[in-house]
Design a protein around this nucleic acid. Sequence first.
DNA 1: AATGGAAACTGTAACGTTACAGTTTTTGAG
DNA 2: CTCAAAAACTGTAACGTTACAGTTTCCATT
Lengths: 347, 347
Amino acid sequence: MNDQHRNGQNEAAAGGRPTLKTIAFMTGLGVTTVSRALKDAPDIGEETKKRVQLVARQVGYRPNRAGVRLRTGKTNVISLVLNTDEQLMGFISDIIYGVSEELASSSYHLILTPYSSRNDPMDPIRYVVETHSADGIIISQTEPNDPRVRYLTEHGFPFATHGRTHTGIEHPWHDFDNHAFAMQAVRALVAKGRRRLALLAPSPKLTYYRHMSDGFAEGVEEQGCAAIPFRDAWVDMPVEQIKAAATALLRRSTPPDGLVSGSGAGAFALVAAIEECGLQLGRDIDIVTKQSTPLVQMFRPQILVVNEDFRLAGRELARAVRASIDGTAPASLQTLAVPGGVEIQTA
Amino acid sequence: MNDQHRNGQNEAAAGGRPTLKTIAFMTGLGVTTVSRALKDAPDIGEETKKRVQLVARQVGYRPNRAGVRLRTGKTNVISLVLNTDEQLMGFISDIIYGVSEELASSSYHLILTPYSSRNDPMDPIRYVVETHSADGIIISQTEPNDPRVRYLTEHGFPFATHGRTHTGIEHPWHDFDNHAFAMQAVRALVAKGRRRLALLAPSPKLTYYRHMSDGFAEGVEEQGCAAIPFRDAWVDMPVEQIKAAATALLRRSTPPDGLVSGSGAGAFALVAAIEECGLQLGRDIDIVTKQSTPLVQMFRPQILVVNEDFRLAGRELARAVRASIDGTAPASLQTLAVPGGVEIQTA
DNA sequence: AATGGAAACTGTAACGTTACAGTTTTTGAG
DNA sequence: CTCAAAAACTGTAACGTTACAGTTTCCATT
């Protein structure tokens, strides 16, 4: 048995990846001491710490994640839960990049947990919690009364949502101020002389539908202009359908002369519809749209844009879950991105 | 000691997540037997297997990943290595979704390993291999003489690349036939009466630059038309820069009358440049572009498109790494997506 | 009745880590 | 010089799994 022990030490020192045992053998210390020295524990001598840390760096020691995870239960993983049905949700990659950026300097890995609308959105959440396959979860497509938020809160599982809820639960979130966006949009259109405005809103089941609709209504009220209902299209529909609905809207007896688009992709559909109806952007009608990449704007300089930074959203969400895992109170992990105002291209 | 053992069993049976010990306690069998019964080992009785599997299902047993990983070294993770500097690389999300789709029915989790061009692209690869944080790697942005492919092959680490290499190494890959795409594009433009063609190609450092350029050259040769060099812009530049370069190209004394775009985003820049120059798409000039979402086409129906399915790419890549992990020979894990031909919108 | 062997099952140890409960050494107060 | 206590360090066990080397049971053969 003693023999096996020594054998083990030799093996560790010789081949493969260094472990605590390797460093213990090299420094002549016990495995426990090495472990504690590397975490800067108070009951280890200063010189010993220095020595251990030096050797660890020299041999390129990296803690074995499986070992840590098995012993402590900490996975060092954050799960981003995504609906993979979405078409052309190009901004998702920006959120992912933002999250990655923020996690790069930490010990966390980013894992993607996909789900399809064909299944219960709760499935991936339950899976992560039940198998404890991550230390925290990031949720997108947040709904006003999101059951995932309830479930995670009840289970005391750290998470952050992209978008707020109306659950009355204090939880970590990051959101873009869509209320302010819509108001800014209405004001900009009115400043351009537009009086009959329509909004291409998000899907009514998502929280930010309310925010944007309310902001729009409030803007219209404030500016004393008319709101033309545009209820048969949402930003997350296929663009062809949006275009068709917008074309129908523009051919009504009292068409809008100002449009607000809740997404960059939606703006393409609106522009296409406008031009198909023989109207000219900037002369007959104006659009204010959110954009995350400068595609639309480069294409039709007349379009008015408000930038939404999804990388920032990703970073903020990652920061929030991380802090939540570390025990920070939810109330202080809520951030709202304020739109920078309507941009007019001066080309 | 015996006491502690029994205590352990009780705890397992009572609270928390079920383990092999829980099932062993419930069935009255040994932990080893349960483990082997669940993997359908030949030396376990049929009735016992049934019984164990029934109980396992009843209690919702899921093997603890950390335990398996620590014992066997198998991580059940596949790493997708991504360059996070890319702007508007919207198709990345489709690749991710494709990979997710394919992995959903397996035991694999998808982990994202990001890197920035500011660092060595080898860093994330070395990290994954050295810490064995995944069982396989998926690489994008493949280069002709990609050092990552060499490194992974030398280390016998399973991987698959999006795009081929010219390393002479037989490795798993999935690629879109950009040679065929470019030839189809040239033929379609010539069929429209265009004779002076220019290509907006990928970055010269990527493998598919050669494929597309060669296909374009071959098409031009075959059709006996002229190739106008367009060497100061690549598809992965910011769209504004592409637009500027394209505008300059169109204002030369001998401008092209047919354009081929290697990416959907590039097509927007080309259309913008064309219209800024007062030209009309379909009358003065034509474009053939790759597209992955129907944005451009809906917008300018005159544009000619060839569809590239990135979800398919993701699925194929996931299948390839998976098979590679299972020991399948690389030569049989190479798939080429053939472009479906140039589509003309008949609206 | 003895024996060989197949079938079915099990205990032990180990993967790498850390919590816990020590043990040894040093220091300082009396 | 004694002794208490602080400082520095260590061994053991356990997290959940599986490879390996048994052990027991039972049946067919001689």
